[in-house]
Design a protein around this nucleic acid. Structure first.
Length: 824
RNA sequence: GCCCUGAUGGCGGAAUUGGUAGACGCGCUGGACUCAAAAUCCAGUGGCCUUUAAAGCCGUGCGGGUUCGAUUCCCGCUUGGGGCACCA
């Protein structure tokens, strides 16, 4: 060991040591309590960025800390390796997606190792390998067998320039994210997963996820979007089918004065066929077609409608109400048709005013300032029912339930719930994804590939043009299959799966990553699952986390997963910013991890990132801050280096000899206590590190003393190194070795604090007058309320403060303060 | 519009159940060491008033309230960030 902190040599040395000793590989050990720490695996774009460093540093500290606490810690890493960039590189540069991806994974793996992360690399997965996607296909087939995967023709996002379907995520502000062409709609037959069957469970379970940030739970709640109300059937005059609508306000049923259908509603064409309304309706539809998705869905779009010449009958009043089509009614929400109550819905109100439609109030606001029969705006809150026959006089909240019961009894409707969540469109017209293991047979229809034939391999004789249908159609042989049911020639599905499927179960695969007989061994999954701590960016708050929950629930239902919820605790880390905005190429404010590691080492990078902000907050990059972290490590290093030699023959047992020893012990033990609680209970790495800094400052003070207790000093330095080791493992291994230890810090037991060292004889307390601090005093600690008050009141300075004042009240808080309320 | 969050020195941030606001770090100032500089070590550092010190006053986005005592709890605002949104 050199007095100069040579981080490059030290980091290389210990990374090799860890790898040689295979220190981070774990197996199921029923004797030990397990802990599963997981960071969201990266897409192998080629280089790690600071967001990765932050994410993995957080996970690494937890994994290392918990290991030292004696847990059997599973801490795996892999790659979410399918996806568009590899294919775009193929289109642009003619590279092979598999080669491109594997090169990137190799490079990123190297970088991750340079950060000193404690991963069990033996469990690594890459979703683009046949060993992985074989089981992806197997899971898809299980969905199909349970009737939860189906193919359906539906209007999807279509980019007319790229000639391909786009996922919702690929439509940014209404244009294609790649070529910026406005996205249109196209009817296509696509595979869907029936996530809507799980909507209720996905929603209800959110309340149980107490280890998740409220923010994420709320976002998922909004996304699932449950509405409760009723479905009601309206007869259409001269038409044999009934119009079904959904409403959250069945209490306003008596106030319905018209109906509005989405222009694309299935009934519309039939209702106007051969009438004078046929042509205007066609024109109305035409105009809507020209609108982009954003304009169509904009809340500021002028509400327009068109009477289509037909009437419905209100099932409660028998009243005839006109049917309109309207641009503000959505085809794919609810039933695509609404009952309109202008008196109690603002949109309906505006629409009714515009087209001169009757407004019937059914709830009386009970406010003299509002004329019920001449409303100036819709009345939305509570009141008493009017114009509602037998329900008149009831509070409208009660009437809501009563009316639902009534329509159920009369068979014209029933209580109902709808969700905003849609089924998951998983087909992608892409090459670089898991092939959907389905075949179309003339006789048998869509059938799954036989499980023993999995995986359905991605063909290599494929052209990448970036246009038209799935690239898999360009393979000469891929589509030619055999029907697994009847043996006739069958055509293979040429679309691949959305990559979000791959990442919806990888945490289960980590439990038994090398299994080639099953997706994983159930006993192993039972030991490791669920993930105790999941860490990743908040940008995955909805899609990834919802899909992973959905998969886990499904896998639980078919007996494959031991748990219903995959992630017990979730930590969403904040972004890394520079100059106030997210690091990005276009802004040109990127600081690369490579650069920082080369200049200061991985330990400094980790320390800076963990110290500068609490993990869930945004982190503003600061070059001066990095310097500070580097300086601190140098300071610790010198402290240990300079002391180590004189401590060689220090005895192991120590006793505190004087006040300085006691002070050091006090700081040492409070640091141990604070670091532990900050790590385990609060994830406050920043304050944990600051506690270690306080200890280092105290050690420097102690080192400046004439007489030092060598045994105590040795003990303190040992503890210091262990406390710091989860944060900056390389330098700590080096210092640990220098302090005369031969084993790695990794499996050392976490230091324990001595409660008795935390008890101080005297303690600084505050004397307040009327709640304002007047004096700071040292008094004996651990006194009773009365004794404490007596001790403080006896102080001369206190007596001076109280001179000539009339005491009204005394509040005594031992070991903290004495507050005297006075008059005059 | 609805929902979730946040607002504390020059800066990043502490204050864990209502009890000394500003821990720790950055920056800055001064000192020691040095021929000098860098590095290092030590000390100081919320504002106002004051030659200095003591003392005092003000201070956690704004306005009220509860309390002996409020960054913390309650009511009403301002404002930054995020999510959802013609959702029937």
């Amino acid at each position: 060991m050199d007095r100069q902190y040579d981080f490059a040599a030290i980091e290389k040395k210990w990374q090799k040591y860890w790898a040689d000793k295979d220190l981070f590989s774990v197996t199921e050990d029923p004797e030990k309590q397990k802990y599963y720490v997981l960071e969201m695996f990266p897409y192998p774009s080629g280089k790690c960025h600071m967001g990765h460093v932050r994410n993995y540093s957080i996970g690494d500290v937890m994994a290392r800390y918990l290991t030292m606490q004696g847990y059997n810690v599973l801490h795996p890493m892999g790659f979410d390796a399918f996806g568009l960039p590899a294919e775009n590189a193929a289109i642009k540069h003619g590279t092979r997606p598999d080669v491109w991806t594997h090169d990137n994974m190799a490079e990123m793996t190297e970088q991750l190792k340079q950060l000193g992360l404690s991963y069990d690399w033996d469990r690594s997965v890459a979703t683009c390998t046949p060993e992985y996607y074989k089981w992806m296909q197997w899971i898809f087939i299980q969905f199909f067998k349970k009737g939860l995967a189906y193919k359906k023709k539906k209007a999807v996002n279509w980019c007319p320039s790229c000639q391909t379907v786009l996922a919702n995520e690929q439509v940014v502000d209404g244009v294609c994210e790649r070529c910026k062409t406005p996205v249109g709609k196209k009817e296509l037959e696509q595979w869907y997963l029936k996530i809507t069957d799980y909507a209720e469970r996905l929603l209800d379970d959110l309340d149980k996820l107490e280890g998740w940030p409220l923010k994420v739970r709320t976002m998922q709640k909004n996304w699932i979007g449950k509405s409760t109300g009723a479905q009601v059937f309206f007869e259409i005059e001269g038409f044999d089918q009934k119009l079904e609508i959904f409403t959250t306000r069945p209490d306003t049923l008596y106030g319905v004065t018209y109906m509005v259908l989405a222009p694309e509603h299935a009934f519309v064409q039939e209702l106007v066929a051969g009438t004078e309304y046929e042509k205007p309706v066609a024109e109305f539809l035409d105009r809507l077609q020209y609108l982009s998705d954003i304009d169509r869905n904009s809340t500021t779009l002028e509400k327009e409608g068109l009477f289509i010449g037909r009437y419905c009958v209100n099932p409660l009043t028998g009243k005839r109400v006109p049917i309109y089509i309207g641009n503000y009614v959505l085809t794919d929400y609810g039933t695509g048709a609404i009952m309109a109550v202008p008196a109690h819905d603002q949109r309906d109100f505006d629409f009714a005013k515009k087209y001169n439609i009757e407004i019937i109030p059914v709830i009386d606001p009970g406010d003299p300032a509002i004329d019920v029969n001449d409303l100036q705006e819709a009345f939305l809150t509570e009141g008493k029912m009017i114009n509602s026959d037998r329900f008149n006089g009831m509070n409208n909240r009660e009437a809501l339930d009563a009316i639902v019961a009534y329509i159920e009894e009369k068979g014209i409707g029933k209580a109902s719930t709808i969700f905003r969540l849609r089924d998951w469109l998983i087909s992608r017209q892409r090459y670089w994804g898991t092939p959907i293991p389905m075949l179309y047979c003339e006789h048998c229809g869509w059938v799954p590939e036989k499980e023993e034939n999995l995986p359905v391999l991605l063909p290599e004789d494929v052209e990448f043009t970036g246009k038209g249908e799935s690239p898999l159609t360009t393979s000469k042989t891929f589509q030619n299959g055999v029907c697994p049911v009847c043996g006739a020639p069958a055509r293979r599905e040429i679309d691949t799966m959305d990559t979000f499927l791959d990442s919806s179960w990888y945490f289960l695969r980590y439990c038994d990553a090398r299994n080639d007989k099953a997706p994983w061994d159930k006993e192993k999954a039972k030991y490791w699952m669920s993930v105790d701590q999941y860490i990743g960016g908040v940008e995955h708050a909805i899609l990834h986390l919802l899909y992973a929950r959905f998969f886990t629930m499904f896998l639980y239902d078919i007996g494959m997963s031991p748990v219903e919820e995959p992630f017990k605790n979730l930590l969403t880390q904040g972004m890394v910013l520079k100059d106030g905005s997210k690091m990005s190429k276009s802004v040109g404010n990127i600081v690369s991890p490579e650069e920082i590691i080369a200049k200061y080492g991985a330990d400094t990078a980790r320390l800076f990132i963990l110290f500068t902000a609490p993990p869930e907050k945004e982190l503003e990059w600061s070059d001066a801050g990095v310097e500070g972290s580097y300086r601190f490590l140098n300071r610790v290093y010198r402290l240990v280096y300079d002391a180590a030699d004189e401590l060689k023959d220090a005895p192991a047992a120590f006793t505190a000899q004087n006040e300085d020893d006691k002070s050091l012990l006090f700081v040492l033990n409070s640091s141990i206590k604070k670091v532990g609680s900050d790590l385990k209970e609060r994830f406050n790495f920043n304050t944990a590190i600051s506690a270690i800094m306080v200890l280092v400052n105290e050690l420097y003070r102690y080192r400046g003393l004439e007489t030092q207790n060598k045994a105590l000093l040795k003990y303190a330095l040992d503890c210091l190194v262990l406390l710091l080791s989860p944060f900056t493992p390389h330098i700590c291994e080096e210092m640990w070795e220098h302090l005369g230890h031969s084993e790695s810090t990794y499996h050392q037991p976490w230091p324990k604090y001595d409660e008795s060292a935390l008890v101080q004889d005297t303690i600084e307390i505050v004397f307040q007058l009327n709640g304002k601090v007047k004096e700071k005093l040292n008094v004996a600690s651990g006194l009773s309320k009365e004794a404490f008050q007596e001790a403080v009141m006896a102080e001369e300075r206190v007596q001076q403060q109280l001179a000539g004042k009339q005491i009204v009240k005394i509040v005594s808080v031992p070991d903290r303060l004495l507050n005297v309320v006075v008059k005059g």
